[in-house]
Simulated scan of single mutants.
Amino acid sequence: MNWLFGLTMLFIGCTQNASDTVISLQLNWTPEAEHGGYYQALEEGYYKEEGLDVEIRSGGSGVRVETETALQRSHFGITNADKLLSVREKGLKIIALLAPFQSSPRVLIHHKSNPISSFEDLSKAKLLILNNTKPFYRFLVNKYPKLKNIDTIPYNKAVFMENKQSVMQGYVNAEPLVFNKKGLPVEVLKLSEIGFNPYASLLICSEDLLKERPELVQKMQQASIKGWLKYLEDPTKGNKAITKLNPSLTDHITESANQLPPLMKSDSHFGDMKLERFEELAEQLIKVGVLEKKPAYDNLFLNP
Rank of each mutant, 00 (worst) to 15 (best):
L25T: 00
D53W: 00
T30Q: 09
Q40V: 01
I23L: 13
W29R: 11
P31M: 12
L27H: 09
P31G: 10
E43G: 13
I23G: 10
G37F: 06
I56L: 11
P31W: 11
I56N: 02
S61A: 11
Y39S: 08
L42M: 06
E49H: 10
E32M: 09
G37W: 08
E32H: 05
W29K: 13
L25K: 08
G60T: 04
A33H: 14
Y47H: 13
A41D: 03
E49P: 01
I23C: 08
E34K: 00
E32D: 08
E44W: 02
Y38T: 12
E34R: 10
G51F: 09
G37N: 05
Q40F: 01
G45N: 12
G59Q: 07
E34P: 00
L42H: 11
E50G: 00
Q26W: 14
G60N: 09
S58W: 00
Y46V: 06
Y47D: 12
G37R: 01
W29M: 06
G59P: 08
K48E: 15
Y47T: 15
W29L: 13
L25A: 04
Q26E: 13
Y47E: 08
K48S: 11
Q40N: 01
D53V: 10
R57I: 11
R57H: 06
G36C: 07
G45A: 13
L25S: 08
L52M: 14
Y47K: 06
S61N: 05
Y38C: 10
E49N: 11
G37L: 06
D53I: 07
E43V: 15
Q40W: 01
G36R: 05
G59D: 02
H35P: 05
G37V: 13
G36P: 14
W29V: 00
G59C: 07
G45P: 11
K48W: 04
V54A: 04
G36N: 08
P31Q: 14
Q40I: 03
Y39V: 09
Y39R: 06
Q26D: 06
Y39D: 04
E34H: 04
R57Y: 03
I23Y: 07
W29A: 14
E32S: 10
S61C: 05
G60Y: 09
L25R: 01
P31T: 15
G36M: 08
S24N: 01
W29G: 10
R57G: 01
S58L: 05
A41W: 06
G59W: 02
A33Y: 06
E50T: 03
L27G: 02
L27D: 05
K48G: 06
E43M: 12
A33S: 15
S24V: 07
S24H: 10
A41I: 12
W29I: 00
L52S: 13
H35Y: 04
